Computed example of a mutant assay.
Amino acid sequence: MTVLTTERLVVRDWTADPGDLARIYDIYSRPEVIRWLGAASGLPLTDPAGAADRLAWWRERHAGHGSRYGTWAIEARATGLVVGTVLLKPLPGRDERVPTTDIEVGWHLHPDSWGHGYATEAARAVVTRELAAGTPQVWAVVAPGNAASAAVARRLGMAHVGRRTDWYGGEELDAFVLRADG
């Protein structure tokens, strides 16, 4: 299902199609991608069969959210290539089983798709939609040292508000916020 479109991208549900599962595995088995996702992420994927488990976990995590929150595929309209993932969801708190009321935007792109502005374009679309729905602010949390993701957050107009330990089990992360009121 298509969640939204931009000039160059389709943001859609990941599917159990073999092409999607292969791309999930290809993205989430790469050390250069998962190094920024934290110890609790359950990554890297080490077996292609793990892609189906990851998809099932995403579906379960977002089952009650309709299409408002999710972990979605980012597909380039010109080529049909899935370039990565964009997510919008409640941030997990210090107890990672308990979501907070803080809403997170995030992105994970395949290295063959870095440097094309896809993360910024997809994230801007989901953030714009979420703020228009009445959410007062959206957060991005970035592993310290991940300059590329920090740059995406800044391109989105997000303000760096320092390092925080409020989320993801208390992991220290650089926090960026974009408030609806400017």
Results as ranks from 00 to 15, higher is better:
residue 2 T to R: 12
residue 3 V to C: 04
residue 3 V to Y: 03
residue 5 T to N: 11
residue 8 R to S: 06
residue 12 R to E: 07
residue 13 D to V: 07
residue 13 D to A: 15
residue 13 D to I: 03
residue 14 W to I: 03
residue 16 A to I: 01
residue 17 D to N: 02
residue 18 P to M: 01
residue 19 G to F: 00
residue 20 D to V: 00
residue 23 R to D: 07
residue 25 Y to C: 03
residue 26 D to P: 00
residue 26 D to H: 00
residue 26 D to K: 00
residue 26 D to Q: 00
residue 28 Y to T: 01
residue 28 Y to M: 03
residue 28 Y to I: 02
residue 29 S to A: 14
residue 30 R to W: 01
residue 31 P to E: 10
residue 32 E to T: 14
residue 33 V to P: 11
residue 34 I to V: 15
residue 35 R to L: 11
residue 35 R to E: 15
residue 38 G to T: 10
residue 38 G to L: 08
residue 38 G to C: 11
residue 39 A to N: 09
residue 40 A to K: 10
residue 41 S to H: 04
residue 41 S to F: 01
residue 42 G to S: 03
residue 43 L to P: 10
residue 47 D to K: 07
residue 49 A to V: 13
residue 53 D to Q: 13
residue 54 R to A: 10
residue 56 A to S: 14
residue 58 W to M: 07
residue 58 W to Y: 15
residue 60 E to D: 12
residue 62 H to W: 06
residue 63 A to I: 06
residue 66 G to S: 07
residue 66 G to R: 07
residue 67 S to L: 08
residue 70 G to I: 09
residue 71 T to Y: 09
residue 72 W to T: 02
residue 73 A to H: 03
residue 74 I to C: 01
residue 77 R to S: 09
residue 77 R to L: 09
residue 79 T to C: 02
residue 81 L to K: 08
residue 82 V to R: 03
residue 82 V to P: 00
residue 83 V to H: 01
residue 86 V to L: 02
residue 86 V to Y: 00
residue 87 L to F: 01
residue 89 K to E: 15
residue 91 L to W: 12
residue 93 G to K: 10
residue 94 R to L: 12
residue 96 E to Q: 15
residue 96 E to D: 02
residue 101 T to C: 06
residue 102 D to L: 12
residue 102 D to P: 12
residue 103 I to R: 06
residue 106 G to M: 10
residue 108 H to N: 14
residue 109 L to M: 11
residue 109 L to F: 15
residue 109 L to I: 09
residue 111 P to M: 07
residue 113 S to M: 06
residue 113 S to V: 04
residue 113 S to K: 04
residue 113 S to T: 06
residue 114 W to K: 05
residue 115 G to E: 02
residue 115 G to N: 01
residue 116 H to M: 09
residue 119 A to R: 04
residue 122 A to K: 04
residue 122 A to G: 04
residue 124 R to A: 15
residue 124 R to S: 09
residue 126 V to D: 06
residue 127 V to D: 04
residue 128 T to C: 03
residue 128 T to L: 08
residue 130 E to N: 07
residue 131 L to Q: 08
residue 131 L to T: 09
residue 135 T to E: 11
residue 136 P to V: 09
residue 138 V to K: 06
residue 139 W to H: 14
residue 139 W to Q: 08
residue 141 V to Y: 11
residue 141 V to S: 12
residue 141 V to F: 07
residue 142 V to C: 05
residue 143 A to F: 05
residue 147 A to G: 12
residue 147 A to Y: 01
residue 149 S to Q: 08
residue 149 S to E: 05
residue 152 V to F: 01
residue 152 V to N: 02
residue 152 V to K: 02
residue 155 R to I: 05
residue 157 G to W: 07
residue 159 A to K: 13
residue 160 H to L: 14
residue 162 G to A: 03
residue 163 R to D: 14
residue 163 R to A: 13
residue 164 R to A: 13
residue 164 R to T: 14
residue 165 T to F: 06
residue 165 T to P: 10
residue 166 D to K: 13
residue 168 Y to I: 08
residue 170 G to M: 12
residue 170 G to R: 12
residue 171 E to I: 12
residue 172 E to L: 13
residue 172 E to V: 14
residue 173 L to D: 11
residue 174 D to H: 08
residue 175 A to G: 11
residue 176 F to M: 15
residue 177 V to F: 04
residue 178 L to K: 14
residue 178 L to Y: 06
residue 182 G to K: 11
